[in-house]
């Protein structure tokens, strides 16, 4: 079954066309990778799906309902959660308090006390149980990335958009993160779209990988095939541009 479907999505910023007819779909229960060179528009796609940006043309359909024009808060309540490429925890709040807004406004919790109990559980799920009362700005990069995942889970999503959750992490942390994402996908039964620069992680974890370049999806296949796709090697893997750090996408 298709959970998310983008049809001919276009977006330009001023005179710069970033997305020029993006079409792809994500199956329920899968982990879908989205790769592409810096500036290809991967984060723009996430911004459109989560409602922070409006597409100039095309449609986004989630779980049978068109969400192209929907406000971000409605999309969140409808079941799409996301993280941010450059982590944006609520800086002045503790790790646990970071999860409260999502739980109370999209996760179906009405009372702060109940939400706090659930927040503690979610922090344990992402191995941040010990940092519950730590101010989020004092967490390490790896911890902040996990906190963002927990915060997205707080909205009880069916679809989780993860924007470069491996970038900037050590090899050890990447393995831990892979294990965490697989656990989320299987235990909580959540569909995941993953924007990634770290090829190793993407190839390990994804069921299907789409390649975004020159404003459209140029290839979509299982990881093993993508790695050998000539077109992909040409625009992306062969360019030598991909790095662990990743850049800021348009």
């Amino acid at each position: 079954m298709t959970l998310l479907e983008l049809q001919g999505v276009e977006k330009s910023f001023g005179g710069l066309s970033v997305l020029d007819g993006v079409t792809f779909s994500v199956e329920t229960g899968s982990i879908q990778g989205l790769i592409g060179p810096n500036g290809a528009g991967k984060t723009t796609i996430f911004n459109i799906v989560s409602g922070l940006l409006r597409a100039d043309a095309g449609t986004v359909v989630f779980d049978g309902e068109e969400i192209t024009e929907m406000a971000p808060r409605r999309i969140a309540r409808r079941g799409i959660g996301r993280t941010f490429q450059i982590t944006r925890p609520y800086p002045g709040m503790t790790s646990r308090d970071n999860l409260l807004p999502g739980l109370l406004y999209a996760g179906g919790y009405d009372r702060v006390r109940d939400a706090r109990t659930r927040a503690t559980e979610l922090l344990e799920l992402v191995d941040l149980g010990a940092d519950a009362t730590e101010e989020s700005r004092s967490l390490t990069m790896s911890e902040q990335k996990r906190l963002e995942i927990a915060r997205a889970l707080a909205t009880e999503p069916e679809l989780l958009l993860l924007d470069e959750v491996f970038a900037g992490l050590s090899h050890e942390d990447i393995n831990r993160q892979i294990e965490l994402i697989e656990r989320i996908q299987s235990d909580l039964d959540i569909t995941i779209i993953l924007i990634e620069h770290v090829m190793e992680a993407t190839m390990t974890i994804c069921d299907q990988v789409g390649v975004l370049a020159n404003g459209g999806i140029i290839a979509e296949d299982v990881p093993a095939e993508i790695a050998h796709n000539e077109q992909v090697i040409d625009v992306y893997l062969g360019s030598g541009g991909e790095g662990v750090g990743g850049g800021v996408d348009a």
């Binding site: 989560s50 409602g51 922070l52 406000a71 971000p72 808060r73 999309i75 969140a76 309540r77 959660g81 996301r82 941010f84 944006r88 609520y90 800086p91 002045g92 709040m93 308090d97 409260l100 807004p101 999502g102 109370l104 406004y105 999209a106 996760g107 009405d110 009372r111 702060v112 939400a115 915060r151 707080a154 909205t155």
Partner: peptide, 25 residues
């Protein structure tokens, strides 16, 4: 102490993120 206050704190911390978490800012 209420749910309402949690929403306001989220707006103070990061309004855009708050909007992606179901909050009618």
């Amino acid at each position: 102490r209420s749910r309402y206050g949690v929403g306001l704190y989220a707006i103070r911390e990061d309004e855009e993120v708050a909007s992606t978490q179901g909050i009618n800012t």
